[in-house]
């Protein structure tokens, strides 16, 4: 599973779910509409920069805080193709697999890729190739369960196939 795109923004450590998706918009339950409020309070400039398929890069513990799935949905429906970080908070990580948004854990890539770089990412093999600089980075391997979910496009299609198809 390979995705290509550009790094739209680079964020620091401990980017929390209130920063990603403020609590005041939690009454919005249409997943697509959540994208309008991505980073709205803390980094309002990022949303306009995201082109479909772009990547976000972050430090450690991205997505810490609340279990709100809107934080993942907002990232995904804003058009982000994958997030690369040093580490992710666990609920955010699972929410992303469940919504079919690839996450890559790579300390080196997180430190060395820059906004504007063009990347090619092999999600299942865990390889991040920076076409702009020619550097290549390894990401932590995904467990088979995660690969299955991403390949299905998330938990809903996965379970629909298993139970209701």
């Amino acid at each position: 599973m390979t995705v290509r795109g550009r790094v739209a923004a680079r964020l620091g450590d401990n980017v929390d779910t209130d920063v990603i998706y403020p609590g005041r918009f939690l009454s919005i339950t249409d997943r697509e509409k959540t994208a309008e409020h991505l980073f709205e309070l803390a980094h309002p400039e990022i949303l306009g920069r995201i082109q479909p398929g772009d990547f976000l890069v972050a430090g450690k513990n991205f997505g810490c805080g609340s279990s709100r799935e809107q934080a993942t949905a907002a990232v995904k429906y804003a058009g982000v193709g994958a997030i690369i970080a040093v580490s992710f908070a666990r609920i955010f990580y699972r929410n992303s697999l469940n919504l079919g948004l690839p996450l890559l854990v790579s300390k080196d890539a997180s430190a060395r890729v820059h906004p504007g770089d063009e990347l090619e990412i092999d999600v299942t093999a865990g390889v991040i190739y920076d076409q702009t600089t020619g550097e290549s980075f390894a990401a932590a391997p995904l467990d088979p369960r995660a690969v299955e979910l991403l390949q299905a496009g998330g938990l809903v299609p996965y379970l629909r196939k298993k139970y209701a198809a």
Binding site: G65, S67, E69, R94, N95, N98, L99, G154, V156
Partner: peptide, 29 residues
């Protein structure tokens, strides 16, 4: 629980953790 502070129930010696909404739909299924 679809709430991150579900860890609270560890005070009852339960393995209690927060999950997202879609994951909960999987549990309901």
């Amino acid at each position: 629980g679809t709430d991150s502070h579900t860890t609270t129930h560890g005070a009852f010696a339960a393995f209690a953790t927060g999950i997202g909404a879609t994951e909960m739909a999987g549990v309901w299924t």
